[in-house]
Write a protein that binds this DNA or RNA. Structure first.
Lengths: 149, 149
DNA sequence: TTAGATGCAAAGACTTTGCGCACTT
DNA sequence: AAGTGCGCAAAGTCTTTGCATCTAA
């Protein structure tokens, strides 16, 4: 298990440690990720970065996110059919996404421990705790659906 | 809970029951889905349908799949970043997808019962048993990774 | 007859890639 | 100085939509 990297300096060190170069774009992406607790789509990260560095292009963001994933700085998850979301790997958790309203709940990875053990035992399959995304219906939409019928 | 519709006739009845029209394209999609145990991407369904009915267009397939989902004839799941896969709702199960090799295991929905109860109790979130897709590493890729390091 | 379904083509959303220049080391 | 990383633009993939035509009921 690699140590989480949740500060800008730790992220930049990780880049240097992998013989990568520290650029303005990478530093800004790191700052945006650290400053944001919520998970972000590549598009949201691009916008946030461009607020400070207007000339950074979306393709660069994708390339940086790809590098950060290799370095285990960030993880991504696919919620529903929409764009992937990224967040720091230090914030390990699963996602619950409401199919009705799109609400996403972030929940501790511990919820998946039992399932994880079961899948390992039954199928030799190792669940990725960074990448769990469960679809369903949130409490509010359940209530709404009940009141409609 | 709706009864599963796993034969072509049952599917066509469901369409008529919802005031939809039974067309050649819909019938062929139904036949392809019934004939295939594996889940299929929209593209694979299109190819299979076009083997018999060459003039059916991809957009029609998407529209039919959308209708079938509303009628609870099929469900879809998003595995990794690739295209969505569709299968008959009668075959209720979760998906385990290996991030390394892309292998997909289909497992009984019962595996998610405990997690489902926990999420309902803790967050009021109702897990969609038709749509569970878990990422991780399959047994073979785990072994391979171990032998490499 | 007539409203829903389809084919075609274009658009749309998200992501990746090629190329030559710029910047980090 | 050397080579990684970048911006730009184009291409690629998957999916949706507009519109005129066709067809099931």
């Amino acid at each position: 298990m690699t140590a989480p990297r949740n500060t800008v300096d730790e992220i930049l060190s990780a880049i240097r440690g992998a013989a990568g170069r520290v650029t303005v774009a990478k530093r800004t992406v790191a700052e945006v990720l650290v400053a944001t607790s919520r998970h972000l789509t590549a598009d949201e990260i691009t916008s946030a970065v461009q607020e400070r560095q207007p000339d950074v292009s979306p393709s660069t963001i994708y390339r940086i996110l790809e590098e950060f994933e290799k370095l285990e700085i960030v993880v991504h998850a696919h919620l529903g059919q929409a764009a992937a979301v990224y967040h720091l790997s230090g914030a390990v958790h699963g996602h619950l996404t409401c199919e009705q309203c799109g609400l996403t709940l972030e929940i501790p990875a511990a919820h998946f421990d039992a399932l994880s053990k079961e899948l390992q035992r039954s199928y030799g399959f190792m669940l990725d705790r960074h990448h769990v995304a469960i679809s369903g219906t949130c409490a509010r939409c359940q209530a709404q659906r009940r009141s409609e019928s």
